[in-house]
Structures are given as structure tokens and as C-alpha cells.
């Protein structure tokens, strides 16, 4: 399920979405630009764990989130291990994991609506350049809404293939998924029109 928000009353839950986004962006930039050192990397990992504890999510939650990233970690590490010094590889892996955990922390402590509102407000200065913040916010919301729907289509197709004893075939999976997704996009367009959005 894409909606990861976990209701709570921690200081991080109470912090408005805008400042939270800015702090996370600054932290991500900081850890990405600072030269690698074991102390800095350990400090970043401890700080992220501390932030999860402050949010009342428990010390196990960052470990759980990091475990979900194991394949990404593997790809990042393997692609660099032959070309870069060990410390740099470890630093890059830790940077990626820390930045993703921080981003997850925002979605875990901020309702989607408030997050989208903050992004809409942040885009308002770009209006003279032809950016429509409401449309961008609507697009973001609909993307978030649609991801579980498409995941549901994928599950249906896999189930139908298993039920018919068909071996896993990428094309036989991708084509119906594409058709179902396009049909859903059509239906969603009708629903938007019916609710007054042209």
C-alpha cells in the first residue's frame, strides 16, 4: 500500500510538512556533499535512527525499511566495488540508504494531503513560468492513488496466469497490464470530467 502514513502525535508528526521537507532536503544535500569518513557515516546512521525514535516508530523500523532496500544496496555496491576505494563505496551506499530512510520518514509522519499541499505551495512562485501548481498537485495525488491500483492489476494478471498454469512470460504479463492500465486511465478521465475537472 502506497499510503504509508502512520498517525501519531510525535514532534515530527506535529511539524508542518513544508519545513519537514526543507530539513530533509538540507540533510540529504549535506550527507551527499560531505567527504566520506567513518565517523560521519556512523553519525548519519545514528541521527536517522534517532529521528525514527523521535517519531515514535521504534528502533526496528529503520532496520525494516533498510532491509527492503537490500537489492538496491546490492546494485549500488556491486556497480562501484571494482572501481572505487572501499570507504567511498560504503559511503555511497550509506548515503543512498540514509536519504531514502529520511524520505520515508516524511511519508510515515505526514498525511499525503498535507504533503501535496506543501508541494503545491512551494510551486506557486513558478506560476509566471506557466507552471500550474494545482494541476501538479492533482497529478501527484493521482499518481499516489493509482500505484496500488496498478499493483492490483499486476496481482490479478499473475493470479490468472497461475490459475491457467501458464509459465511466467514477460510479454504475457506486460501486454495485459498495459491494456488494463490504459483502460483505467480512460475511466479515471471520465471520473474527473464527471466531477468537474476538464
Amino acid at each position: 500500500m502506497i499510503s504509508l502514513y502512520r498517525p501519531g502525535n510525535s514532534p515530527l508528526h506535529r511539524l508542518p510538512a513544508g519545513p519537514k521537507l526543507l530539513v530533509v532536503m538540507a540533510a540529504a544535500l549535506g550527507i551527499s556533499l560531505t567527504p566520506p569518513s567513518p565517523a560521519l557515516l556512523a553519525g548519519a546512521a545514528v541521527a536517522v535512527t534517532g529521528a525514527y525514535l523521535l517519531a515514535g516508530l521504534g528502533a526496528a523500523e529503520p532496520a525494516r525499511q533498510a532491509w527492503r532496500l537490500r537489492w538496491l544496496v546490492l546494485v549500488v555496491a556491486v556497480s562501484q566495488v571494482f572501481f572505487l576505494p572501499a570507504l567511498t563505496v560504503v559511503a555511497n551506499v550509506v548515503r543512498v540508504v540514509v536519504v531514502i530512510l529520511l524520505a520515508n520518514l516524511i511519508t510515515l509522519t505526514t498525511p499525503t494531503g498535507l504533503l501535496v499541499d506543501a508541494i503545491e505551495r512551494a510551486l506557486t512562485p513558478l506560476r509566471p513560468l506557466g507552471v500550474n501548481p494545482s494541476r501538479v498537485a492533482l497529478m501527484l495525488s493521482m499518481t499516489i492513488t493509482t500505484i496500488p491500483v496498478i499493483a492490483g492489476f499486476a496481482a490479478q494478471i499473475r493470479e490468472a496466469q497461475r490459475a491457467r498454469g501458464v509459465p511466467v512470460a514477460p510479454l504475457a504479463f506486460a501486454v495485459p497490464l498495459l491494456i488494463m492500465t490504459m483502460k483505467h486511465a480512460d475511466d479515471l478521465a471520465d471520473a474527473l470530467t464527471a466531477r468537474g475537472i476538464d
Binding site: 499510503s3 499525503t112 492513488t145 475511466d187 479515471l188 474527473l192
Partner: peptide
């Protein structure tokens, strides 16, 4: 399913 536009019920 095709009528849901926003992520949460209230939204």
C-alpha cells in the same frame, strides 16, 4: 475503483 481520485477517503 475507477472513481477514486485522491489517496484517502476524506481527501
Amino acid at each position: 475503483d475507477t472513481q477514486i481520485i485522491m489517496p484517502t477517503v476524506a481527501e
